[in-house]
Design a protein around this nucleic acid. Structure first.
Length: 239
DNA sequence: CGTCCAGGTCTAC
DNA sequence: GGTAGACCTGGACGC
């Protein structure tokens, strides 16, 4: 789809508007979450309209990016994603190559065709390369339908089952599954990692906090526990 | 220059 | 079901 060229067709314009609505989660109804947060002094601020987690146009993109956050510094995450998009993504017509938004995130087909050498020698993704090849291949072949995960309602695909499906993906463990679930609007699981744990403890005024204690703190939010936890630890990103 | 580790996961007990 | 060890990479640190 051409979105940066001299003109934009009506169809492309409508498609783009839909993608923007999706990425910015404009149709999300968070009233249930706000209801619970209103009575929590530490989180009542969110009722002003916080909590619309940005998401990628596709679940595939969020899975790949999330795996790129595991077991490495944020700088490495950006380097890997930049390489994947820059070398495998389709250039947007009219865009100046190398500039932000100049390329779309690659399709599973493109990522599958790249092969392990690309991930090892160019993206320098280390052991994650095998995960990307395996993941991209199974998505490209239709063996795994990641996009259906975002479409399915909790009735059709309960959190437990969704989490199991995500955990079955190469490179996806408890942290990544929770992260991916958040991006597709399943807010129950808490994203517990080496950054959120100490950040929570610090903000809560404790030396440390066990996972069990953190889970207890946000239990009152039920299906929104993960969202409440995330906003608690990222509050200073908003203000 | 060696060690540690960062927004973890996998495998083998 | 729970827990050590290994695992790519590169930037930060101590020596």
């Amino acid at each position: 789809m051409t979105v940066l060229g001299p003109s934009v067709s009506e169809a492309a314009s409508a498609e783009l508007a839909g993608t923007v609505r999706h990425v910015l989660r404009l149709d999300a109804d968070l009233s249930g979450f706000y209801e619970a947060a209103a009575g929590d002094p530490d989180l009542s601020w969110v009722t002003a309209g916080a909590g619309r987690m940005i998401q990628s146009p596709t679940v595939f993109e969020d899975v790949v990016k999330t795996v790129c956050t595991t077991n490495c510094a944020w700088s490495a995450t950006k380097r890997m994603v930049d390489a994947i998009v820059g070398h495998l993504g389709e250039p947007a017509a009219g865009a100046v190559d190398g500039e932000p938004f100049g390329r779309a995130f690659p399709t599973a087909e493109a990522m599958a065709e790249a092969g392990e050498s690309f991930y090892r020698d160019v993206a320098r993704a280390g052991y994650r390369g095998a995960y990307f090849v395996s993941l991209a291949r199974s998505v490209a072949e239709g063996e795994v339908d990641l996009e259906s995960f975002a479409r399915a309602t909790p009735d059709e695909l309960p959190d437990e089952e969704l989490e199991d499906r995500l955990l079955a993906l190469p490179g996806v463990g408890p942290y990544a599954a929770a992260h991916i679930m958040m991006t597709i609007g399943r807010y129950h699981r808490l994203i517990l990692d080496s950054w959120t744990r100490p950040t929570y403890a610090k903000l809560a005024g404790r030396k440390s906090a066990s996972d069990a204690a953190i889970l207890r703190r946000f239990r009152r939010y039920g299906p929104y526990a993960g969202l409440a936890f995330w906003l608690f630890v990222t509050r200073d990103w908003v203000d």
